[in-house]
Each structure stands twice: as C-alpha cells, then as structure tokens.
C-alpha cells in the first residue's frame, strides 16, 4: 500500500506506469519520453510484463482523480499548460474525501482551532503534550479566511442551497469566498454553472443573508 501510493505520487502518471518496462527494456525508454505516456503503453510489446503493468496502472487509476494526471503533465513540462484548460477545473472533493470526513468552512475551523488555542497556556505547561507543527499555520489561515463571526448561522443560511443541488464542499467554498455577487460564485465554482438557471435566485437570497452575517471590521 505504502509503496504503491508512493510510486503513484512521486512520479507522473504516464511515467510511473512505464517505469518497469523501461528499466527492463532499454529501447522503450527513449520513446516513452518523447511521446505521451499512455499511447506508448499500447504501442510497446504486449509482453506479459507490460500487461501486468497496465493492469496495475488501471487499478491505481480508479481512485486517481484527474488532478494527479494533470499534475503529471505539468511536472513533466513537456506539454503546454494551456491544454489543461480544456478540462474544467471542477471541484470533486466529495469523490476524494476519505470516509468519516466532512468539509468544514474556514470560519468553522477557525472557531474550533481558536478554542484550542485558548487552552494552549494550560496545554503548554505539560511538556508531554505535543502540538502539531501545522496547527499555528492552519489557525492563521482559518482566521484570515474567516469573514463571519457565527459559523452556525452561516451554515444555516447556506443549507437551503443543498436542495438546489449544491454539494457540501461547494457550500463551504462559497462561505470561504465570501462572495459579493452570484457572478463571482459562478465564475469561481464552475461546477455550479450547469445549474445556473435554477440557482441564481436562491443564491442571491443566500448571499444577501450572508452579507448580513459579515464581520464588521
């Protein structure tokens, strides 16, 4: 598991699947580099080995979202980045989310982390209690992205959007954006564009409600 996961990530997708055959058969190497990853797979000899590699690759791919593929291309530097624009940058957090996990809005995270921060004086007295290094930076980010004082009311205001097909992760992104107009929402969350007709009016109401909750600073 660990080894597989590492492999999948440390190398671009096309390359990683090619790695084994390339190292075994030297002549594959150059063609693999000049061409895109997948095509070479099919062009190359249909030896048992490459078949095994292909199957392992497709296994890995089932849980591999588009993001990594794109990263792979970018990382390789060979492909022009403009091509990536073709596939819309859609939020697919729900599909990637581990089980037993749910998205939090920045303001919710800020409230929870700040609550812990307040206990820090007591906690730091005990040297056996360790605080993760990411804690401070996470708290800082949550606070900077926190536009609302009362996370519960923000959730309450956003929840009606759910019945219009807005996912929880999209709701959280809306809250984190603290948008001023529905145009801003549709521009930044392309996955909502398809529902634009139905969504525009409820969204307007939501945004005006949200504006009332905004922190006055």
């Amino acid at each position: 598991m660990a080894e597989k996961g590492g492999k999948e990530f440390s190398l671009p997708k096309g390359k990683s699947s090619l790695k084994t055959p390339a190292s075994v058969k030297g002549k594959d190497d150059s063609s693999a580099k000049s061409k895109g990853g997948r095509k070479v797979q099919f062009d190359s000899e249909d030896s048992l080995e490459s078949k095994i590699n292909m199957s392992s690759k497709s296994d890995g791919k089932t849980d591999t979202p588009v993001a990594k593929g794109d990263w792979g291309k970018g990382g390789k530097g060979g492909k022009s980045p403009i091509r990536k624009e073709a596939s819309a940058l859609e939020l697919k957090i729900e599909q990637e989310l581990p089980k037993n996990a749910k998205c939090l809005m920045d303001c919710e995270a800020a409230a929870i982390l700040q609550g812990i921060q307040e206990q820090m004086v007591v906690l730091s007295e005990d040297p056996t209690i360790k605080i993760p290094t990411a804690f401070d930076r996470g708290l800082q980010y949550a606070k900077s992205g926190c536009h609302y004082t009362n996370p519960q009311s923000v959730r309450r205001v956003l929840e009606p959007l759910e019945k219009h097909g807005v996912s929880v992760s999209e709701m959280c992104v809306i809250a984190n954006l603290c948008p001023e107009s529905s145009d801003e929402v549709f521009a930044l969350i392309p996955s909502l564009k398809g529902k634009k007709d139905k969504l525009t009016n409820p969204l307007k109401d939501t945004l005006s409600e949200l504006a009332k909750l905004k922190q006055r600073t």
Binding site: P65, A67, K92, S191
Partner: peptide, 8 residues
C-alpha cells in the same frame, strides 16, 4: 487541512 483541485 488539505488542498483540493478546483478549490479557491
């Protein structure tokens, strides 16, 4: 905290 593709 985890960054996701498509996120702002």
């Amino acid at each position: 905290f985890r960054p996701y593709r498509g996120e702002i």
